[in-house]
């Protein structure tokens, strides 16, 4: 377990590389939104890594970036259509950040730096590493924000018509522990992310020593 944590924290896109922060701040108002966004990025990253590592030798150096963006856009569109059809509430919550995965620095960055220079299988493993790291980071931020800002933890609400369950739990009774509405606002998002970044990097530094 510890090894797995180390594997995804080693090059964690949010806490270490500081990429893809914009969706991290915008959609993580609940725990569920957080991990679902992370999973979407994981799926897109996986498929785009596969395709890029297969095609990269054929693409000319000058049109590398537009070509990769086209590939990524294809998969994002497919994902968007699937989500719109089967899990409409989720697409309403994620709003514009679902199509914005196209220009998420993580995917383009990994495509340029890793997938274009490596074979398919390492690229798949890298996609999982980065994707799971991002999911972990986003769900952590979402958990903290929702717990402190709303007194609830939502595990399965938006995708309820798919799975059939609603799992939304109120942790502290609302009349004795009052929720702190700052954390649901963008200011609280910055605050949470900053503090988590500091704490996680401090722990990492101790580990490295």
């Amino acid at each position: 377990m510890k090894k797995f944590l180390k594997w995804i924290m080693d090059e964690n896109p949010l806490f270490v590389l500081c990429l893809g922060m914009c969706p991290a701040l915008a959609v993580t108002t609940t725990f569920e939104n957080g991990y679902l966004m992370g999973l979407s990025v994981l799926i897109v990253l996986l498929f785009s890594n596969i395709v890029v590592s297969l095609i990269s030798k054929v693409i000319d150096n000058h049109i590398r970036i537009p070509a990769y963006i086209m590939i990524i856009a294809t998969f994002v569109t497919i994902l968007e259509i699937i989500i719109n059809t089967y899990v409409e509430p989720l697409s309403k919550t994620l709003g514009i950040y679902l199509p914005l995965i196209v220009v998420n620095c993580i995917i383009l960055g990994r495509a340029l730096s890793y997938a274009s220079n490596n074979k398919v299988v390492p690229s798949i493993i890298d996609a999982f590493k980065i994707g799971l790291g991002y999911t972990f980071a986003l769900s952590l931020i979402g958990l903290v924000r929702e717990l402190l800002g709303n007194n609830t933890i939502t595990i399965m609400d938006r995708i309820s018509n798919l799975t059939g369950y609603i799992m939304k739990y109120e942790i502290f009774p609302s009349n004795s522990v009052i929720p702190n509405q700052l954390f649901l606002s963008p200011a609280g998002a910055f605050l949470t992310m900053g503090l988590l970044l500091g704490i996680i990097n401090a722990l990492r530094r101790e580990d490295i020593k």
């Binding site: 009052i178 702190n180 509405q181 700052l182 954390f183 606002s185 200011a187």
Partner: peptide, 10 residues
Amino acid sequence: LFVIASYGAL
């Protein structure tokens, strides 16, 4: 600012 922004209504 933290206190007033979070719990101003309270």
